[in-house]
Design a protein around this nucleic acid. Structure first.
Length: 348
DNA sequence: CGGAGGGGATGCTAGTCGGT
DNA sequence: ACCGACTAGCATCCCCTCCG
C-alpha cells in the first residue's frame, strides 16, 4: 500500500478534473471515469478526508486538478471521459515518463510532491550508460571507479572496529554488511571522518571522469541533458504540491526543446567540499534568437542504499535550478497567458 | 530548510529443478 | 541440452525522516 499522501495527491488531482462542484461531491460520487481506483482506495480517502490530517494535500491536489481542467495547454474546460490512475504499481518496462495519471488516453500527468530530486538510479546506468540502457552489468560502483580509495577506506574502518571483519571490502558477506551498517550508524567516528571525506573526493572525481568520457561530443551532451531533465518523446505535465506552494509545468519533448534552445556546454565536476560523494553538473543553454545564456545545474549524490556498506551504491540526481527557470519546463499559467481568450470561470 | 541518510516496495534476474 | 515453472534474493525505485 502506497503512502496515504501519495494516494491523496494523485487521486484527488484526477478527481478535480471531472468538474464536480466540490471535493465532497466528488468523493461521494466515486466516478467511474476514474479507473483503477478500488473501493479500498475510496474508503481510505474518505477516512483521511474525515480526519482532516491532510487538508493541505487535498487542497493542493484539488486546485492542481482544477487548474489543469481549465488550462489552455490542458483540458480547456472539457470534462475528460477517462482518467487512468497508474495506481500503486510500478509501470512495467522503461519508465521514461513518470506519469501517475493518463487522461483521455493522451494527457500524461505526473503528480509530484514538490521535490528537487529528479531521479534515483544505479550509478552505472547514469555515468556509464548515460540513462540509455537500464540493463547492464551491475558493479559495486565504489569498487568500479575508486577501488584503491574504497579498499583503503574500508581497511581504516576495519582497523577501527576490530575483529570479525574480512581483510578486504571485496570479501564482505551479507551478515557482515549488516553488522557494519549497524555499528556505523550515526555520525562517522572522529577517526573515520577524515578518511571518509578522502574516499568521497576520490569516488566523486572518478565518477565525474567516467561520466565525462561518455559526453565528449555535443550531441551526447544534449541528449544527456534531455534525459536528466526527463524530457520524453511525448509531452507531459507535472502537477506538484507542497504545504503552501504549487508547481504546474508542461514538460517539452526534445523536438520542442530544439525549436527554442540550443546547448552551449555541459560540464561535470567532482565536488570535493561535499560530505558524501557528489558530482556536480552544469549546462549552459542559449535560447534561439536571444544571446542570454541560461544556466541549468544540479548535482548527483552517490550513496549506499540501505545504510553504510550495506547494499549497492545508487545515484540520486538533484536539480538545483528552480523548476520555473529550466529551459524545457513551461509553467502552465504561461501557456494560459498566451491564449487568454480561452480562460474559463472556475469558481465553484 | 535542505543535505544526509534510511528503508519499504516492487519486480527483475539468476538460481534450481524436474520434465522432455 | 534445452525448456518452463517456480522462487529467493536483491537492485532499483520511490518516498520518507532526521538533524545541524
Amino acid at each position: 500500500m502506497p503512502a496515504p499522501r501519495t494516494e491523496v495527491t494523485e487521486i484527488v488531482t484526477g478527481l478535480a478534473m471531472l468538474g464536480f462542484p466540490s471535493l465532497r461531491d466528488a468523493l461521494d460520487a466515486r466516478p467511474p471515469e476514474l479507473r483503477n481506483v478500488e473501493p479500498a482506495h475510496w474508503d481510505r480517502l474518505d477516512e483521511v478526508f474525515a480526519e482532516g490530517s491532510m487538508d493541505a494535500e487535498f487542497r493542493g491536489a484539488w486546485s492542481n486538478g482544477l487548474a489543469f481542467l481549465g488550462a489552455a495547454a490542458g483540458l480547456r474546460g472539457r470534462r475528460p471521459y477517462l482518467i487512468e490512475w497508474k495506481g500503486p504499481h510500478r509501470t512495467p518496462g522503461y519508465d521514461t515518463v513518470p506519469a501517475d495519471l493518463r487522461i483521455d488516453h493522451v494527457y500524461l500527468v505526473s503528480c509530484k510532491y514538490l521535490s528537487k530530486i529528479l531521479m534515483n538510479v544505479s550509478p552505472a546506468y547514469l555515468f556509464d550508460r548515460l540513462l540509455v540502457d537500464r540493463r547492464g552489468p551491475v558493479p559495486d560502483w565504489y569498487l568500479e571507479v575508486a577501488p584503491d580509495a574504497y579498499r583503503a577506506f574500508y581497511r581504516t574502518v576495519r582497523d577501527h572496529l576490530g575483529a570479525g571483519l574480512p581483510a578486504e571490502v571485496d570479501d564482505l558477506v551479507k551478515d557482515q554488511r549488516i553488522v557494519l551498517k549497524e555499528r556505523l550508524a550515526g555520525p562517522w567516528p572522529g577517526k573515520l571522518a577524515g578518511p571518509y571525506l578522502e574516499f568521497c573526493a576520490a569516488a566523486a572525481d572518478a565518477s565525474a571522469a567516467r561520466w565525462r568520457a561518455g559526453l565528449a561530443d555535443p550531441a551526447a551532451q544534449e541528449e544527456m541533458l534531455w534525459r536528466l531533465l526527463r524530457l520524453s518523446g511525448a509531452p507531459y505535465f507535472v502537477l506538484g504540491t507542497a504545504p503552501d506552494d504549487v508547481l504546474r509545468l508542461r514538460i517539452y519533448t526534445p523536438w520542442d526543446w530544439r525549436q527554442e534552445f540550443s546547448l552551449g556546454s555541459f560540464e561535470v565536476t567532482g565536488d570535493a567540499a561535499a560530505g558524501q560523494p557528489v558530482v556536480k553538473w552544469r549546462a549552459l543553454v542559449t535560447p534561439r534568437g536571444d544571446g542570454r545564456e541560461l544556466p541549468v545545474e544540479g548535482h548527483v549524490e552517490i550513496r549506499w542504499s540501505h545504510g553504510r556498506f550495506r547494499r549497492m551504491p545508487e545515484a540520486k540526481v538533484y536539480l538545483d535550478t528552480p523548476h520555473y527557470d529550466v529551459p524545457g519546463y513551461s509553467p502552465l499559467d504561461a501557456d494560459d497567458r498566451l491564449s487568454r481568450g480561452l480562460q474559463l470561470d472556475l469558481s465553484l
